[in-house]
């Protein structure tokens, strides 16, 4: 018997805009996933610790503050340091096109930016978990 996909949705740093992440949470719930939401203003270490304790398949980081170039590398480093590199990291929110290549290079699997339809989010997460295979 297979389990629902587990997703941790996190708002990191000084970013109080959480309407989007709540819509995403609801969408994923309706697609049959278990969604753990951290609430606002978390630090990278808090998010990584939570992702490990919850053993999530996907860590979704919602960023609308423009701090992605600082926060994402920190999160990727911490995941590596704590031997949790098999966590699939997906970034959502507002990220300029020219930063996308860098974020992918450091290990972010997918960026789901503005105007992404909800069905695409579900499809992407399902595909990424499938590609990873059992663990």
């Amino acid at each position: 018997m297979s389990s629902p996909i587990r997703v941790l949705l996190a708002k990191v740093g000084l970013d109080g805009h959480d309407r989007g992440v709540k819509v995403v949470a609801r969408t994923l719930r309706d697609a049959g996933m278990d969604v753990i939401y951290t609430g606002l203003h978390r630090t990278p270490l808090e998010v990584v610790n939570a992702a490990i304790q919850e053993d999530v398949d996907v860590l979704g980081i919602s960023l609308l503050s423009g701090a992605h170039m600082t926060i994402c590398p920190k999160i990727m480093d911490l995941l590596k340091e704590k031997d949790a590199e098999d966590t699939i990291v997906v970034v959502g929110g507002v990220v300029p096109d020219e930063d996308v290549a860098f974020l992918k290079e450091i290990g972010v699997k997918e960026l789901l930016l503005q105007d992404t339809p909800p069905a695409k989010i579900v499809e992407t997460l399902t595909r990424l978990v499938e590609e990873r295979g059992p663990r």
Partner: peptide, 28 residues
């Protein structure tokens, strides 16, 4: 959810002060 089988697990939000303590483990 009785319909989709999915869920939103939000208890952690109230426990954020515990996340950095190595002697505490929270699982939703």
């Amino acid at each position: 959810s009785p319909f989709s089988g999915g869920s939103i697990l939000g208890d952690r939000i109230r426990m954020t002060n515990l996340v950095l303590d190595e002697g505490v483990y929270i699982r939703s």
